[in-house]
């Protein structure tokens, strides 16, 4: 149940309006940079640096054409899409399985496993990226999307496991016993009965992984260092900045191509984003 301390009374209209107006102005300044890049992506270079206004004189869709084809953002878009989708599938299956047994069963070695997992939360990324790069090279998958996808999936699963484990542990035992009576084995119980019950966690974990995979920078920038074909969008825009430094509007369009899909996803699935984020402090 939600709880609210309503110290802003609707009856006290002056206070109510003051606070609303303040937050409206605050919100405008807050998203101005995002609106600015959106508007810049449809302007001419000259107009971008001309004023603070956000409405373009004439919509220049060619900026997107230039970014998509000329700067190869089209290819990077599909790279990012593949990495994101596949890594979400891998992450949901593997952490779901792991969370299931951690949350519901006792077995020798469980405590050690949990201990190792918790310890990994606190290890900073900057320090493991070099051996990851090296490992992918040794496995000969550093030059294609497979390596980047697997590494993206393997990088941060701990919070997902905790979310799954917490949810699975709250499902009543009777369900499992009934399944056993019906002759369902371990795997069938998991797939047919348990996993469908955890849809909210699957959604939350998927969203978090989409966010992570789509927006990741350090891993893809290092892996694609000598291999521009498998760049992701973030790395692509970064490289764009180095290569075509004067094409401001094209770069703005490339930025919009990168951030708009996630913003739209966020607007439609806000609930799961918020739950995923809050899960980190609630546990």
């Amino acid at each position: 149940m939600s709880k609210y301390l309503n110290f802003i009374a609707e009856k006290n209209q002056v206070r109510y309006l003051t606070i609303t107006v303040f937050f409206l102005i605050f919100s405008f300044f807050w998203i101005y940079p995002l609106l600015w890049v959106l508007s810049a992506s449809l302007k001419t270079d000259f107009e971008i640096w001309g004023g603070l206004g956000l409405i373009p004189d004439k919509l220049i869709w060619e900026n997107f054409e230039r970014a998509w084809f000329g700067a190869n953002m089209g290819r990077y878009f599909f790279n990012t899409l593949i990495i994101t989708v596949v890594s979400v599938v891998i992450v949901v299956i593997t952490t779901g399985m792991f969370g299931y047994v951690i949350g519901r069963y006792a077995f020798p070695g469980k405590k050690i496993l949990i201990g190792i997992l918790i310890a990994t939360i606190f290890i900073p990324q900057g320090y493991t990226i070099i051996p990851v790069f090296d490992l992918l090279t040794d496995l000969k998958i550093s030059k294609n999307l497979i390596g980047l996808t697997i590494a993206t999936a393997g990088h941060t699963p701990v919070i997902y496991i905790l979310l799954f484990a917490g949810y699975f542990s709250r499902i009543p035992v009777e369900l499992e016993e009934a399944a056993k009576m019906d002759g369902a084995g371990f795997i069938r119980t998991f797939i047919m009965i348990m996993l469908p019950l955890t849809k909210p966690v699957v959604a939350t974990v998927s969203i978090l992984q989409v966010l992570h995979a789509w927006n990741d920078f350090l891993l893809p920038v290092v892996i694609t260092l000598g291999n521009p074909d498998i760049r992701t969008l973030s790395v692509g825009v970064y490289a764009f900045k180095g290569e075509y430094f004067v094409d401001w509007s094209g770069m703005a369009a490339a930025s919009v191509i990168t951030i708009l899909p996630i913003i739209i996803l966020f607007l439609f699935m806000q609930k799961y984003f918020v739950e995923g984020v809050q899960g980190a402090v609630k546990g």
Binding site: S2, Y4, L5, N6, F7, I8, A9, E10, Y16, I19, T20, F23, L24, F26, S27, W30, I31, P33, L34, L211, W214, N215, F217, V221, L233, S234, V235, V237, Y238, S255, T258, I259, I262, I263, L265, F266, L267, Q270, F273, V274, V277
Partner: peptide
């Protein structure tokens, strides 16, 4: 924004949260 009475509170939350979902490199 925890005030339920504030009608636009969900909108403000969305706006303030928006930069979080955008790619950091961008």
């Amino acid at each position: 924004l925890n005030n339920q009475v504030l009608k636009l509170s969900p909108f403000f939350r969305t706006v303030i949260f928006m930069p979080v979902v955008t790619a950091i490199a961008i």
